[in-house]
Each structure stands twice: as structure tokens, then as C-alpha cells.
């Protein structure tokens, strides 16, 4: 069974860092996909149905909350594990996170080891 992780962030360096963090998983058969905005993310979620999404909250137009909400509710893809990424120092609306159905949230700067461990845990590797 192929496993896929989708990385969504409008900032290129964050995408690259997460990719780099998770790169070792590629050798274990995991496919890493990236998206630079909310629309792209939703298209990939619908077509690729990734197992895990690292999703930035603060994105122009379609925010991480919106992507999460549509995935979990409109698309009904409740099996997709969604980790919201929020910037440290910014007030994170936990209640909204819960409402849109996010499974977890992590703050940036993220701890790469914790992020990798979470990915392994969710994918069961």
C-alpha cells in the first residue's frame, strides 16, 4: 500500500524544511507531495488522498482552516490525518482548530524530530 504525505505551505523554505525532514521516509516507500496554496492542496487531496497532511494555517485566499474543513466535512475524507502548522507567537484558535476537524497542531519553528516521529506514528512505520 503506497503512503503519501502532503506538505502545504506558501513559504518555500518551510516546504523545503519539512521535505528535508521527511526525506528518509521516501526510501521506505512514502511519497512526498507539496502544495503552495489552499486550492492546490485541495486538488491534490481530492486526487491523491494522502494519508497525512502538514497544513499551514496562515495562507492567502484559502486558509489552512478552510482546507481542513472542506477535507474533513465537504469531501468527507475523515481518515486523512491533518496536522495544522501555526506560527509561534500567534494566537491559535484551538476551538476553530477543533471545529474544522484538525487532528493535531504544531507550532513553527517546529521541532524536526517531533515532526518526523509524528509522521512515522501516523503512517505506522
Amino acid at each position: 500500500m503506497s503512503r503519501t504525505i502532503l506538505i502545504v505551505d506558501d513559504e518555500a523554505h518551510i516546504r523545503m524544511l519539512i521535505q528535508q525532514t521527511l526525506e528518509d521516509l521516501e526510501d521506505e516507500g512514502v511519497t512526498l507531495l507539496t502544495a503552495t496554496n489552499g486550492e492546490e492542496a485541495l486538488a491534490l487531496i481530492e486526487s491523491e488522498k494522502p494519508n497525512l497532511v502538514f497544513l499551514d494555517v496562515m495562507m492567502p485566499k484559502v486558509s489552512g482552516f478552510d482546507v481542513c474543513d472542506r477535507t474533513k466535512h465537504a469531501l468527507g475524507l475523515t481518515d486523512i490525518y491533518i496536522v495544522l502548522l501555526t506560527a509561534k507567537g500567534q494566537e491559535f484558535d484551538r476551538q476553530k482548530g477543533q471545529e474544522v476537524g484538525a487532528d493535531l497542531y504544531m507550532t513553527k519553528p517546529f521541532d524536526p524530530d517531533a515532526l518526523l516521529a509524528k509522521a512515522r506514528d501516523v503512517l505506522g512505520i
Binding site: M16, L17, Q20, P109, F110, D111, P112, D113
Partner: peptide
């Protein structure tokens, strides 16, 4: 990328 990730780990460490 490895280098940047290492620096990122440092930043994260100093931050936390």
C-alpha cells in the same frame, strides 16, 4: 537542505 535543516534545528533549540 541538510545544512539548512541543521540550522533550523539550532534555531528551534535556541527558541525552545
Amino acid at each position: 537542505g541538510t545544512e539548512v535543516l541543521h540550522l533550523y534545528r539550532e534555531v528551534n533549540l535556541i527558541y525552545s
